[in-house]
Design a protein around this nucleic acid. Structure first.
Lengths: 311, 311
DNA sequence: TTAATCGATGAGCTATGTTCATCGAAAGAA
DNA sequence: TTCTTTCGATGAACATAGCTCATCGATTAA
């Protein structure tokens, strides 16, 4: 048809506008947020609509409702704009002579507690690296890695893909935690049936992500009397210590808290429930020094803890 | 420091420039490719460098070598620009009243052969939907799904993630294919040892993705006399038919070709090697009619083939 | 040496995107 | 109902961001 088809109609400002209208409700409010006049946005978007040949909003009365095309562009904006923002942020860090930002994603509570041990020495070694920790992902941790939302994922579920690199960084045993004067506290281990009359405290995550179900109760076809959700580890241990129920935590965590709270770890089943935490990165990022340094540090930690407890 | 920190320095044109310079070697050539003058690019990029406070290229003599910041921005450009292009393409389709483009990714050869069966009826039902099939992914099929490079992934390896939806669409048996006058052609099944003196033809993919190794030879600790790579199914069957070696293919494919070539399927091991192919989509795309329609069609195909061969 | 080609730069122009002023329509308040 | 406010659309006027042109010095190949 036309010789010149390679015109770039779509610009960042259009995406900014689409998103601002969605988020502020009206075009006028969006204009204010973008430090422009309502007229400017109106002209600009009308021009875009003309060039694309498709309306982006249904004009109903004095309100704007996105068309199908508008919805699509909105989704695109919400995906692309944060990447622009992050790129600018990153370049600003280059300008300041800093190394960058290490954005860490986490998918489980033990991951978080492990991370809290790694963080201090890392921050000391890399004072110019910014540190961000995120826990909620629209498309899951793996998706966040691929989408460059995060640079590093701490997770119990590794994924073999040649573009990603996963590496175990921490091994631990998941144990039952009971009050010190609980009858089970004296046992070498507990079997699923013995939890039939207990209240179980868990973190607020879906049941299929709780190892005590996956690896202990469910295989035996057992369940507990009642499950109650607690937000924090301290809260869980408080409730357990005063005999209101039992919980499931990494052994090292229980032992660490056993002075503060009167709680004891009990092995889950005769062999225990062994777990591993992995760190995943994009393979292309393995060359980035401050990312690689984090992995090195994690490896060092792992070796040290294995020496202490060669089990 | 400054009140106004929310300036958007980085624009699409800058990314275009960075990429064009990388791909054409010089700024002058890049300018021509972008239908601009060399002067325009020079001014524009210098302004950006000033605003960001970071040089993007080392100026060495009359050539440009990207700085670390430049490399980073180049990687960003290569990731973001295709998404701009695709968004414009998609909006142009909206303008033409078309539904969109179904971009399918594939991770294995049997996937491709299955797809060839689904494609004709789909194209008939959805004449306004464009159809694209890709086979190479920088970050793997799952990564391509997350990065919106493709809309649909056909793969033997599903992945449980709540943002993705995987669904089995095709079950088949992987069999050994031999010449009709090969001694093994008369057997009900073959055991790993019997392939010790054979030449094995395979597609050009890494060994750990070949089921005949993963599920048949490797578990028995056996191997073949020699492995040879062929590019196409026809080529493989030609070589097999004239007794130059053996191959591994889905049973239905062998049976389909058994009239054209003098080849026979032989079960791998007493129980055979059973395989499944899955289709994965982003969960948010399940509402898109022409994507959902593909899944429906795939389901229909699966039910029909199960009726034919209830095994 | 010569000639070609690179990127940088300043001056000047043009066209793009902005503001201003104003409109009609819609929605909320009295 | 009527009055008032607030929405988005529009045309004209304007300002400036971004482009071209012309030219420079430096580098590289012939």
């Amino acid at each position: 048809m036309f010789i010149e088809r390679m015109m770039n109609y779509l610009e960042r400002i259009h995406l900014e506008t689409i998103r601002a209208v969605d988020c502020h409700g009206t075009m006028t409010a969006a204009a204010e947020a973008l430090h422009l006049t309502q007229s400017a946005l109106s002209h600009s978007m009308r021009k875009l609509e003309d060039q694309l040949g498709v309306p982006l909003w249904h004009r109903e009365g004095r309100s704007l409702r996105p068309t199908q095309a508008g919805e699509y562009l909105l989704a695109t904006a919400k995906r692309l704009l944060p990447q622009f923002a992050h790129a600018e942020e990153r370049l600003a860090q280059f300008a300041r002579g800093e190394r960058g930002t290490l954005r860490i994603g986490m998918e489980c509570h033990p991951c978080y507690q492990w991370l809290q041990k790694i963080t201090p020495p890392y921050l000391r070694d890399w004072p110019t690296v910014d540190f961000e920790v995120k826990q909620e992902f629209q498309f899951g941790g793996i998706g966040a890695l691929f989408a460059h939302e995060i640079d590093l994922l701490v997770t119990p579920d590794p994924l073999r893909k040649k573009s990603l690199h996963f590496e175990p960084v921490f091994d631990y045993e998941q144990v039952l935690v009971v009050s010190a004067d609980h009858p089970l506290a004296q046992k070498t281990h507990v079997v699923p049936r013995q939890l039939g009359d207990e209240v179980l405290f868990t973190y607020p995550v879906s049941q299929d992500r709780l190892d005590i179900y996956n690896r202990f109760l469910a295989p035996a076809g057992r369940t507990v009397r009642k499950q109650k959700v607690v937000e924090t580890t301290d809260m869980m241990l408080q409730m357990v210590a005063c005999g209101r129920g039992v919980g499931a935590l990494p052994r090292w965590l229980v032992e660490e808290f056993s002075e503060k709270y009167a709680v004891r770890p009990v092995r889950l089943g005769p062999n225990g429930v062994q777990k591993q935490i992995f760190v995943g990165v994009r393979r292309t990022d393995l060359e980035v020094d401050y990312i690689n340094a984090f992995l090195e540090l994690a490896r060092g930690f792992r070796e040290r803890s294995e020496e202490q407890a060669p089990s």
